[in-house]
Simulated assay, not measured.
Amino acid sequence: MAAVFHRIDRFDALPEALRGGVVAIGNFDGVHRGHQAVLNAALEIAARESRPALALTFEPHPRAVFRPDLPLFRLTPAPMKARLLKAMGFSGVVEQPFVPAFSSLPADQFVDEVLIGGLGVAHVVTGFDFHFGKGRGGTPATLAAAGKANGFGVTVVEAFADEGGEVISSSRIRALLAGGDVSQAAGLAGYRFTVEAQVTGGRKLGRTLGFPTANMSLPPETALRHGIYAVRFRRADGSLHDGVANFGRRPTVDEDGAPLLETFLFDFSGDLYGETCSVSFFGFLRGEVKFDGLDALVTQMKRDEEEARALLSSVRPLSKIELAIAFSS
């Protein structure tokens, strides 16, 4: 039987069985290979010491609190982040509300109340640039000193660079996705970019054209390039279906509409309305084009289907994470 994964909404609500664990701390937006270096270090220590492995994250993303005027393209909203952490092997995640009162905790109070009192940590793992507490007063050095004084271990993981020697970051991945380069983004993340949303009703125009689609509204901050993608679609029951998706404003039929993700599932018929499903992006096929009528649109959609089928026929999982989210039912 699969181990239970816990999503916990604040540090002082931790189940007793998860106290005394190894805790990785960070925002981990994207759970990319750089984050995975920190997270895997926590998993290794937890396995060696037979302790639960936990991640401590913050919701909403702190930047959304400190810079609410600057929209943030979240690579992994909380539910998706939890799925990825579960796939890695964590026992749970603490999604600590990042509210003004919490953000104003002095660093020593963060250690006393959150790490020791709330989580009862045995070991803390962070990245090299981790800061905590009011005014970012806590640093890896002060955390290590607090650990020595209070009897918990501290591991600080250095920056993780890609094969070209450049540090992997969420901002790099966002920039690649904004350009439609989902393949290179996957290389940095260690898995294909994946979104999750509820399937909603639409105008059913695709059905009349022979290409019925599952329509999903993504957050307005989603800065993925508009265009056509080869994708893999995962239903709520875990079943997987290859397909081709359009993300954008559909200039041929609805130029003024809000951006929408429309996925045509290959060799599938059924009702998906109301299901919360996920879509993983495996390849960018082309940008959005306004066609001269529906006949030209349908002709191009048939070409897109052929190209997507060919691309998806030879894909392989990039990691244990991706095996869980886009390859195994």
Rank of each mutant, 00 (worst) to 15 (best):
F282N: 02
G270P: 04
E255T: 00
D267V: 10
G287F: 05
G287I: 13
E255Y: 10
K290L: 02
D267T: 11
G257D: 12
S280V: 12
D256I: 13
V253I: 14
G274R: 10
E255C: 06
D254A: 15
E275A: 06
C277W: 09
T276K: 11
R286M: 06
S280Y: 04
G270D: 08
L240F: 04
T276E: 13
L297M: 11
V244S: 08
E262F: 02
L260V: 10
L272T: 13
G243T: 00
L265D: 02
P259R: 01
R249A: 12
T263Y: 05
V253M: 13
G283D: 15
F284R: 12
S239E: 12
V244K: 01
V298N: 09
E262R: 09
T252R: 12
F284A: 11
T263V: 15
E275W: 04
D254W: 05
G283N: 13
F264I: 09
F266I: 00
E288C: 01
D271F: 06
D256K: 14
L297A: 07
F282A: 03
D295T: 07
S269N: 13
V298E: 09
D242S: 12
D256T: 15
Y273F: 15
G274W: 05
R250Y: 10
D271M: 10
E288V: 04
V279C: 10
L265A: 03
V279R: 05
L294W: 07
D267Q: 02
F281W: 01
D242Y: 01
C277T: 00
L240Q: 02
F282H: 03
P251M: 08
F268G: 11
F282Q: 03
D254F: 08
D295G: 07
G283W: 07
D254E: 14
E288Y: 00
S239I: 10
V279E: 01
P259D: 07
R286S: 05
G257V: 01
